[in-house]
Design a protein around this nucleic acid. Structure first.
Length: 887
RNA sequence: GGGCGGUUAGCUCAGCGGGAGAGCACUACGUUGACAUCGUAGGGGUCACUGGUUCAAUCCCAGUACCGCCCA
């Protein structure tokens, strides 16, 4: 016998271990089944499970469990990425506690330390994923720094370099002066900052007492100015174009140039140009062939390019000193408060400095072209579709991708430099040496490029590198391209776009057919969860409190397309209640000997209730399946919830009670078998959403040969039964009507009352006879007179009775002495008025010649039918009111 | 400034050309042997606003307002 309540904490680990150890998660490369592949977006190895992970992995697991049950050879490929900067920072922080820097250790020792850290702490998130019930093929787990994946990275780098799609160049990059590395545009966060606009006077050379005033938010960069720009059509400055200013402090002559970059409406209309420290100025500089004067070192301190007395200063100290000097010289026109956007490194939190360095770049624009086309032609499809706009927008304006990073943890650039700076890009050192020998005609010492590659470079290869590429493995042939990528919109640029580029370039085919973009998880007020706001909900806490299935079901139910997921704990509680409801329904079945019957054929059931529930079950299985296939998780969860609670528990099990307590042994046996069958189907249907409780019930309700998670998804054709549905719908309507009137007329639930029925059609009279027990019990009747004499109806009514109409039948509930006749009259009046209103609305439509002429026939017929039904009901209610007049 | 999304019951959200829906919350009643993590019943909405298309608009189109996100 099942326990009184379900205890997730005891059940979950047990099933998870069983599944994992039995190999239930594993794909079968040798099977004949059609593969279904999901590449898990590898979480950061330093990460721990947050609500965003819980959502994305729940959605992926729902898909993979459903497809596995549906007979596909399901591969959910798991793994983690090495998160270059983040991981290096974690280990550096540990070293810092021991007062050691990575430079003290040296590169090799440091990297060794990182691997040690990874071995010890890198498994946190994969352990937590197990608590979520995730069912990836753990045996295939990969790490972006694995030997195989690293080989793929080298191969891709060398190939792209040979194709001219990777090159080395001196360019401005986003330099992080704290981490001492370049970072990508995407890792730069633009923050609104309240700063100042300094107006500086630059003396025009050769004209006494004439100044040009430039406005800047970064006065310290004036040390690197190489021009002043004004708009070509700005008449205020036209006479100065071509002249020079003498740059204060530096005492350098720099030209005044005309360039449309200068906005006459902003600031003073003249703008200082610092090509080595500003991306826009860099463009202006290249248009006018201006020198690039780099005035900062890697710490963003002033270097030796600047005048003595200003060297070796932090950029903010330099700013103070320069502003003071301008003021002293009388060259500071004014200072205005100014709010503007300032770039910050998202990892280090310091202000990013555009800085001129040698870096490796990928020609992303070339790789983007076929990736754009793949979406345009529908080879890859975004769901919801509108996300393709975001993708196009970025891909069509894509910049060269800076892939080198000045850190130690990651894939070291496979390039070796000879003594004269010539470099050799090869997959191995031996090959580089050979290439160098060919170049120099003799062996020369080579030095490997110290930089490592952006983590996203290796992540971009994930859909094929994890399958063994560049080897031609059976996995690669079988599981590429993947069926769907499930991820959040925040990663479209970082990752999705790059996988598309690399997948198409190296595999000749897109990496996945669908890209399902889900929303962000927010708190119940719609705010982003963040540590600083203190509104973080830990998914593991919710699992502890309500069980994993409740959390999974909640996230699925809230995952409506195109909406953020606003998570309130109350929702989780509600779905925990749903789990309890299911548990108790199973318990009820068990108590009533509803055991699965071998060879049970749902098509062969005879009792109407059973034909009805069997049909509804089939409908639900199909609906939930279709919903999952179309990524309508909310509909899948809603459909299952509605059926289990609203149909199976609320009605079917209630209908079963009188049968179980009755004398018809055949009906009893059939109903027991049917209930057991339906419950089993429910367990199948709910399994992708709620794997643990369903597996537990599956195990406890009967002795089974296999785990539920490996059972086939129910395909139940030919079970729809319109007749049974019409019949049971009528029964439900009769019971609901009686209950509603009882409640409204304040008939206590404990009071059993008679019900007299008149005017049933012969079909419905038969239904009433069949279901007399059900109606009697569920409407709490003492007697159910299905063919009441007119005289008895009249007599009951005149003594005071509640009367109702269901279709063409009149139901009378004698309440002599109990009922408030005026109240009943009022109730009937109100009902009549309501019908009157409805009829008037329909009449208006039917009276419209255009409607009759232009609306489809079915619509017109439907309106007529509706009118007839309401008219009948109104007629019956009028008669009821009439009968009441004597009371 | 450019782009995208949203505005439907107190809250969170479905629906999306022909009778306004769900869950939660709320109110009343209720322990009838699965379940109070429950049952039964009920109240609650000019579907943001203004125009247009249509026989018919919450739904399609245009505009307005407000909210959110992304990019510059």
């Amino acid at each position: 016998m099942l326990e009184k309540t379900y205890s997730p904490a005891q059940v979950e680990p047990r099933h998870y271990e069983k599944w994992e150890q039995s190999g239930a998660f594993a794909a079968d490369t040798t099977s004949n089944r059609q593969p279904y592949t999901i590449m898990m977006p590898p979480p950061n190895v330093t990460g721990s499970l947050h609500m965003g992970h819980a959502l994305t992995f729940t959605l992926q697991d729902v898909l993979i469990r459903y497809r596995r049950m549906s007979g596909r050879d399901a591969l959910w490929q798991p793994g983690t990425d090495h998160a270059g900067i983040a991981t290096q920072m974690v280990v550096e922080r540990q070293l810092e506690a021991q007062k050691v820097t990575r430079h003290d250790l040296g590169r090799d020792k440091f990297v060794e330390r990182v691997w040690d850290w990874k071995a010890e702490s890198g498994g946190t998130i994969t352990r937590q994923l197990r608590r979520l019930g995730a069912s990836p093929d753990w045996a295939k787990e990969r790490f972006t720094m694995d030997e195989g994946l690293s080989a793929a990275v080298r191969k891709v780098f060398v190939t792209l370099h040979r194709q001219g799609l990777i090159y080395r160049a001196k360019r401005l990059v986003n330099w992080d002066p704290k981490l001492h590395t370049a970072i990508s545009d995407l890792e730069v966060e633009q923050r609104e900052v309240k700063g100042h606009m300094w107006h500086l006077k630059y003396p025009v050379e050769g004209i006494d007492n004439t100044y040009i005033i430039v406005a800047t938010t970064r006065p310290e960069t004036m040390l690197g100015d190489s021009a002043v720009a004004v708009h070509p059509e700005d008449e205020r400055f036209a006479h100065l174009v071509g002249k020079h200013v003498r740059l204060p402090i530096c005492n350098r002559l720099i030209p005044i140039v005309a360039d449309e970059y200068s906005d006459p409406t902003k600031g003073t209309g003249a703008v200082k140009i610092t090509p080595a420290h500003d991306f826009n100025d860099f463009q202006v500089g290249s248009r006018h062939d201006l020198p690039l004067i780099n005035v900062f070192d890697r710490d963003a301190r002033t270097n030796d390019e600047v005048p003595e007395g200003y060297r070796g200063l932090d950029r903010y100290d330099a700013r103070k000193k320069i502003v003071a000097a301008f003021e002293e010289m009388g060259l500071l026109e004014k200072i205005e408060p100014h709010t503007h956007m300032v770039p910050y490194g998202d990892r280090s939190g310091v202000v990013i400095e555009p800085w001129l360095t040698d870096q490796w770049f990928v020609d992303a624009a070339t790789l983007a072209k076929p990736a754009i086309e793949a979406v345009e032609t529908g080879k890859t499809r975004f769901v919801p579709k509108h996300w393709e706009n975001t993708y196009y927008e970025w891909m069509r304006n894509i910049q060269p991708w800076c892939i080198s990073r000045q850190i130690w943890w990651g894939h070291q650039v496979p390039a070796w430099y000879g003594p004269d700076g010539t470099f050799f890009v090869e997959e191995t050192e031996a090959e580089a040496k050979a290439a160098a020998r060919a170049h120099y005609g003799k062996d020369e010492p080579l030095v490997r490029d110290a930089d490592v590659l952006d983590t996203w470079f290796s992540s971009a290869l994930w859909p094929f590198s994890t399958l063994g590429w560049p080897e031609k493995t059976p996995e690669l042939a079988r599981y590429y391209p993947g069926d769907v990528l499930v991820t959040g919109f925040d990663i479209i640029f970082f990752w999705v776009a790059r996988m598309m580029m690399m997948g198409i370039h190296f595999m000749g085919d897109v990496p996945f057919k669908d890209i399902y973009i889900h929303a962000l998880v927010r708190d119940e007020k719609g705010q982003k969860m963040s540590k600083s706001k203190g509104n973080i909900i830990d998914p593991l806490d919710l699992i502890d409190k309500y069980g994993c299935d409740a959390l999974r079901f909640t996230l699925s139910a809230l995952a409506a397309q195109g909406r953020d997921v606003k998570l309130a704990e109350g929702r989780v509680e509600g779905y925990r209640n749903f789990a309890t409801k299911l548990w108790n329904a199973a318990r009820f079945c068990q108590m009533n000997q509803c055991h699965p019957v071998d060879g049970f054929d749902p098509k062969a059931v005879k009792e109407t209730v059973n034909r009805w529930i069997v049909g509804k079950t089939a409908e639900t299985a199909a609906r939930v399946g279709t919903s999952i296939e179309t990524y309508r998780y909310d509909a899948a969860a809603g459909g299952a919830y509605q059926f289990v609670w609203g149909t199976f528990c609320d009605w079917y099990l209630e209908f079963a009670k009188p049968i179980f307590n009755g004398a018809d042994e055949a009906a009893k046996a059939e109903t027991r078998a049917t209930a057991a069958w339906v419950l089993d189907q429910i367990l199948h249907i709910l399994h992708p959403l709620m794997p643990f409780i369903t597996e537990e019930l599956w195990e406890q309700l009967a002795s089974r040969g296999e785990a539920l998670m490996l059972r086939p998804w129910p395909v139940l054709d030919g079970l729809a039964d319109a007749g049974a549905e019409a019949e049971m719908d009528w029964v439900v309507r009769v019971i609901s009507t009686v209950r509603a009137v009882r409640s409204e007329m304040n008939v206590p639930p404990s009071a059993q009352v008679d019900l007299l029925v008149a005017g049933l059609t012969s079909e419905k009279a038969a239904w009433a006879a069949t279901h007399a027990d059900l109606i009697t019990r569920l409407a709490r009747l003492s007697a159910f007179d299905r063919q009441a004499e007119a005289s008895r109806i009249a007599q009951a009514s005149s003594h005071g009775a509640a009367q109702m109409v269901v279709d063409e039948a009149t139901l009378v509930m004698p309440l002599s002495g109990v009922i408030d006749v005026d109240k009943e009259r009022a109730r009937l009046d109100k009902e009549i008025a309501r019908l009157d209103g409805e009829i008037a609305k329909v009449d208006k439509k039917l009276g419209n010649a255009d409607f009759l002429a232009r609306a489809p026939e079915e619509v017109v017929a439907e309106q007529r039918e509706r009118r007839a039904e309401w008219a009948t009901a109104m007629e019956k209610l009028r008669e009821a009111l009439e009968r009441l007049s004597g009371a």
